[in-house]
Structure formats: structure tokens, C-alpha cells
Nucleic acid binder design. Structure first.
Length: 481
RNA sequence: GCUGAGGUGGCAGAAUGGUUAAUGCGUCGGACUGCAGAUCCGAUUCCUGGGGGUUCGAUUCCCUCCCUCAGCUCCA
């Protein structure tokens, strides 16, 4: 198992990661509440933790990665009510889209997506524990957590209870002992989904599902808990308070990882501000790799400012440069077959390729600095470009060695991988090839009017045409690229 | 107001108590091309918010001020 450093929000320090039960690593990430279509900010965390899981597995850890789904909450009920849809069915519908987007983004590291409503017995049991131990109280059919009973409440986010801004969005519901108390079990309102409980019919509060799930899956303590930076307070505070009070064990998690939020022109992207850019559309318009690249091109803890019409366009430009060399290298490797004899690499080049891979692991092991690994991949690409003309003469083993860094990127970053290269649709590429042949014949007889007409029509149809000395390449163009 | 994270070149964004502060985008010049694009080569050597301090040396550590973003019970 490779050793690595990880920043922990709770202790506010970067320290060596040590699993509770090596080589196992429990990774829990707060997933989403699928009450509407996902926007471009929502996938930043999942991509980040996908890389975390991929890297840990490469480094010899056995990761169990879990992302919960809050498939019932106030917003889902509200949205469902507007359209006369069952809130949980509405959640499922959005999740279908979400899973599709996750698959397109190459996120395959998540082992399990537990849904809140599948854990009602665990939730009820945990609430009962909290009541029994005196951390929670019932009022008017609801159960609240009494934050006064848990002195460490606020430690993660640095909030002081008595400093909570007076008149802020604290909701002094009748029955609450303190405005800061949060609901564990919400008494049923007619027409809403509900379950029987010792306190009457109701449904879970927002925070309780996570700890009910993690205690069930991981036990009272686990290794890494991730989520967006906006979840620190109160959500993650509540989780600590719930789990540690219920199980009597501490700390709930060893490392809290918080992902910097995506802002839109300096402001947080959110529905209420009306400044959202859709996730699915972004993937459609550009590509899953470009979206991934965009996120990973910054440190996961930094906030990232999204500028429509520029951010993904820039990422597309940068990624293409990186990818085109990877594609050509992989093509040469495919052409070489399983065991072609040929020129071997110079000792310097060979050791450079090997040490580049080692350096990639090393860079990533400092709090998952994906940006640094991308910078190194660019440098490696640069040394590769002068080799490009000689590729066809190299042996299979030489090509495999050269592909090391790209294979690393495919395995860990989910970029530049063998499977990620766009193969293209067979029919489409056949038709395009046909048009390009016609253009080539026109060019051969110096009929540039006809040649340019064909090219212009292809461009108008979204196909970019590039002559490269002897051959002509094409690719589907993104918008305004 | 309180808590946290930051302020780096035209832009995006890393890093480190010490040779030219990574990388990318963009821009400029050259090569290639019928042209364009892509690609390649080169340049963009005068960039670390202000002010103090510690140090032989700070962008990095400390203090202070200013500014930005996020959180302060919807939030990835």
C-alpha cells in the first residue's frame, strides 16, 4: 500500500493516511437529492472521489465506496406535489439521468448507492438509541436532536452555538428546545409518504440517513467522508453528533474531505440564484472527458469559477492537445500487435517513461493534486511529440513503455485512456469519409472551389476537417471551438 | 458580526524557506498548407493584494490591514 497525505477538514491539517483496518478503506460521500436536473457543479465531487477511489485501489487499498441518495425530502415532496407525482418516483426519474451521466463521465468506482428510504429500520433504530441515551427528545410527533447535549457540535465548521446569527434562517419550530436543534424524525403531514414509528407516523430528517447507513455498512467509525464544502454545516456536524452520540465511539471518520464549490462568474451555482448550467447538456455539448478534465485541472479543495462560453471551451482546447498524442500513440500500439520486433527505446527515454509514472503517483499522493499530474502529463506529451514520426518502427514493448503515463491517466484520472478515445459511429464516419474522398479528388485536380465547398458543408454540419500533410483528419466539432 | 478557504502573469490555475515561480489557454513570430485549421519550433525573460516582522534569503513562516468566495439550518 502506497502511503499518501490527505487534508482533513476537522483537524485542519494534512497528514498521512492510515486505514482503520488495512487494507480496507471505507469511503462515504454525500450524494445528491435528485429533485431536479443536475447542474455542472454537481459532478465535481463525484469526479473527485472517483479519482480518489481509483487511486486508492491502484495503490493497494480495498475501497468500499458508497454514495447515498436522498430520495425523499421537503423539496422532492414540493416538486412532486406540483406535478402530482410521487416524490420517490420523481427521485428515481432524476436518478436515471444521473446514473447515465455518471456512466458517461466514467465514474465506475462507486460500489453502492443506498437510498434513504431503504434504511428506515436502521434510521428508526438509531433515533431510538439517541432518545434512549438522552440526546434526542420527542415533541408533537417529531424527534429532535438536542445539540446542547453534544459539546463538540460545531467543531467541524468552527461554529459556536451561541454565535449563530440571531434571526438567520433558524427555524424556531414549536416544540424545539433550541432553534439550533435539528429534526431526526418528522411527524407526518397528510398526503406525504410516511412510516410508522414509536413516535407516530412520519419520515426521516435530512441528516439521519447518512449515519444510519454508514453505521450499518461501516460500523461506528470509518476512514473517509466526502462531500461539498457547503455541507460542512450543519449537515456534517449533525452526522458527527448523531453517530458519535448513538454509538458512543469517536471519531466518526478519520478524514473529512470537502470539495470546493463551483461558482458561476463568482457566485455559487444554485437554483435559487437561477445561474445553473446543466450537467447533461455540458457533457453532450463537449464530452465527458472534457468535463472531467475541467474539474481535475484544479485542486479539488479550491473553488472553481465557471464562466459559460469559456471554461469548458478552454478545457476542450487543452484536453485535445493532450489527447491527440495519446490517440496517435495508442493507434501505433494497436498497429504493432502483440509482439512486434522493432527499435527499442534509448535507456534515457525508457527510464524517463518509467519515472514519469512513478512521479504521477507521487504527485497524486500529496492530497490528490490532480493539477500537478496533468502538468506532468503535458510535459511528458511534449517529450513524446518529437518521437511521433518514429512510432511505426518501435517494438511493442517500447510502445507499451511509452504508453505508461497515458495508461496511468486512464486508470487513475479516467482521461486519455484506451477506451475513452472516441471511436465514432461507424455509419457516420463512413459517410464523412465518402465526402472527404470527393474533396480529395477535387483537390487533386486543383478544383479548390469544389474542395472548399465540401469542407464548408462539412463544417456547417459540425465536422471539422484538418489536412495533415499526406492525410486528412476529421473530428466532430464542439460549439464555438 | 462569527467560522473557514483564498488573493499568483492578458486569462485559468499549481508549487516551494534559496538556481530562469510548473502547466495550460490566449497573443506574437517562424515552419508546414492552394487557403484555413490542426501540428511543430521559438517568444511572451520585467506576475506572488498593501504594510510590517523573523531570516543570509519569503511567494512560502508570524502580525496587521484591505479585498473575494463559501458557511452561519435548502445546497455537491
Amino acid at each position: 500500500m502506497r502511503r499518501f497525505e490527505l487534508y482533513d477538514t476537522l483537524s485542519r491539517e494534512t497528514r498521512m493516511f492510515v486505514p482503520i483496518t488495512p487494507p480496507k478503506v471505507g469511503l462515504f460521500v454525500c450524494g445528491l437529492t435528485p429533485y431536479s436536473d443536475a447542474h455542472i457543479g454537481h459532478a465535481k465531487g463525484p469526479v473527485t472521489f472517483d479519482v480518489v477511489a481509483r487511486a486508492l485501489r491502484r495503490w493497494g487499498y480495498r475501497v468500499f465506496s458508497v454514495q447515498n441518495v436522498t430520495n425523499l425530502d421537503d423539496r422532492l415532496i414540493a416538486r412532486g406535489g406540483e406535478s402530482g407525482t410521487d416524490p420517490m418516483a420523481l427521485a428515481d426519474r432524476h436518478m436515471a439521468v444521473w446514473y447515465g451521466d455518471m456512466a458517461r463521465l466514467g465514474i465506475r468506482s462507486v460500489n453502492y448507492y443506498p437510498h434513504a428510504t431503504d434504511y428506515i429500520p436502521e434510521i428508526l433504530a438509531q433515533i431510538q438509541q439517541l432518545v434512549d441515551r438522552g440526546f434526542a427528545y420527542e415533541a408533537r410527533g417529531s424527534v429532535y436532536y438536542d445539540i446542547a447535549k453534544f459539546p463538540r457540535y460545531g467543531a467541524l465548521s468552527g461554529q459556536k452555538l451561541d454565535a449563530l446569527r440571531p434571526g438567520a434562517r433558524v427555524d424556531p419550530e414549536p416544540g424545539k428546545r433550541s432553534p439550533g436543534d435539528f429534526v431526526l424524525w418528522k411527524a407526518a403531514t397528510p398526503g406525504e409518504p410516511n412510516w410508522e414509528s414509536p413516535w407516530g407516523p412520519g419520515r426521516p430528517g435530512w441528516h439521519i440517513e447518512d449515519t444510519a447507513i454508514t453505521v450499518r455498512l461501516f460500523g461506528p467509525r470509518y476512514d473517509i467522508h466526502g462531500g461539498g464544502a457547503d455541507l460542512k454545516f450543519p449537515h456534517h456536524e449533525a452526522e458527527i453528533a448523531q453517530a458519535e452520540a448513538a454509538t458512543g465511539e469517536s471519531p466518526l471518520v478519520n478524514f473529512w474531505m470537502h470539495v470546493g464549490l463551483l461558482t458561476l462568474k463568482g457566485e455559487k451555482m444554485s437554483k435559487s440564484l437561477g445561474n445553473v448550467v446543466g450537467l447533461s447538456e455540458s457533457i453532450d455539448t463537449f464530452s465527458p472527458q472534457v468535463v472531467r478534465f475541467y474539474y481535475l485541472n484544479a485542486h479539488y479543495r479550491s473553488p472553481l469559477d465557471f464562466v459559460p462560453g469559456r471554461s469548458l471551451e478552454e478545457a476542450a482546447e487543452a484536453y485535445r492537445a493532450l489527447d491527440s498524442v495519446a490517440v496517435r500513440l495508442r493507434a501505433a500500439r494497436t498497429a504493432a500487435g502483440p509482439d512486434r520486433e522493432g527499435e527499442e527505446l534509448s535507456p534515457e527515454l525508457e527510464s524517463s517513461a518509467v519515472s514519469t509514472v512513478e512521479e504521477l503517483d507521487e504527485l497524486l499522493s500529496h492530497d490528490f493534486n490532480t493539477r500537478e499530474t496533468i502538468a506532468l502529463l503535458f510535459r511528458w506529451t511534449k517529450t513524446l511529440t518529437e518521437l511521433l514520426p518514429k512510432l511505426d518502427g518501435l517494438s511493442t514493448t517500447a510502445l507499451d513503455t511509452l504508453l505508461g503515463p497515458h495508461d496511468w491517466a486512464g486508470e487513475v484520472l479516467g482521461l486519455l485512456g484506451a477506451s475513452e478515445s472516441s471511436a465514432g459511429d461507424g455509419t457516420l464516419s463512413g459517410v464523412i469519409r465518402l465526402a472527404l474522398d470527393a474533396r480529395a479528388r477535387a483537390r487533386a485536380r486543383s478544383d479548390f472551389t469544389e474542395a472548399d465547398r465540401i469542407r464548408d458543408e462539412l463544417i456547417a454540419a459540425g465536422v471539422r476537417v484538418e489536412d495533415d500533410g499526406s492525410s486528412t483528419r476529421w473530428r466532430l466539432a464542439g460549439p464555438s471551438v
